[in-house]
Amino acid sequence: MSMDATMNPMAAAAAEIADMGASAVTADGDPIKMRGEKVCVHYGDKQALFDVDLDIRKRQVTALIGPSGCGKSTFLRCLNRMNDTIDICRVAGDITLDGMNIYDPSIDVVELRARVGMVFQKPNPFPKSIYENVAYGPRIHGLARSKPELDDIVAASLQKAGLYEEVKDRLDAPGTGLSGGQQQRLCIARAIAVSPEVILMDEPCSALDPIATAKVEELIDELRENYTIVIVTHSMQQAARVSQRTAFFHLGVLVEEGPTQDMFTNPRDRRTQDYITGRFG
């Protein structure tokens, strides 16, 4: 199923406008989905990010790695303005989605988050049934005109998240009753259900056991066909397994960014080398 077919009308219109304005490509020819330019973030007096320039390539998995407190999650949360909920947080610089500045006052943050979905570190299903968890997003955005249509969206989202076979007989059971790995895939299904273009994942496997982690990683690899994915991870093996591009952050600075293969075999920066070889972090 192609991306454009699942895109909701609102997002499709926005994407069209954006495509006319700027269909930017990187130097090596990959189309750019999101772009951060000179992104600085302050929490009160403390600066957490320093002039980060990072391109997120369309339909690729970009991994953000780095030691704790390096600003990778902060950058991730800037991409769908989740930092807005933190009072003391200030964001400077430009972040664009298909050429549109997402911090522009004319941008509706609700619309933005429908296009840039998010999966959190700890699985956080709502205390509702599995069906209601997935149907939540489509309902608030009015994506389904009828109950059968909504059923289809829910089933399709669960299928894409690789959870459908496990839960199809108990869609009315509470989502909180699933195992940790299933809960996280439910949260991914919930994010997919609103047909986002970009999915942000903030250490999605850190609360999961190895088997559940493997399933989620496999899923991320499949989702790459239709979605642009940005994933924050502490596990370098995970970054190596699932991502095409890797960005290494250290102390609020983007140290280096490049194809994952090169990054792990042939890092350009000394700090990157120290981190991936486990000298610190």
Binding site: N80, A114, M118, F120, Y136, G137, I140, R190, V194
Partner: peptide, 14 residues
């Protein structure tokens, strides 16, 4: 939990 509010906001809920 704040995580539920974040989860909902992350899906584009007001």
């Amino acid at each position: 939990p704040q995580s539920l509010r974040d989860g909902s906001a992350g899906l584009g809920a007001t």
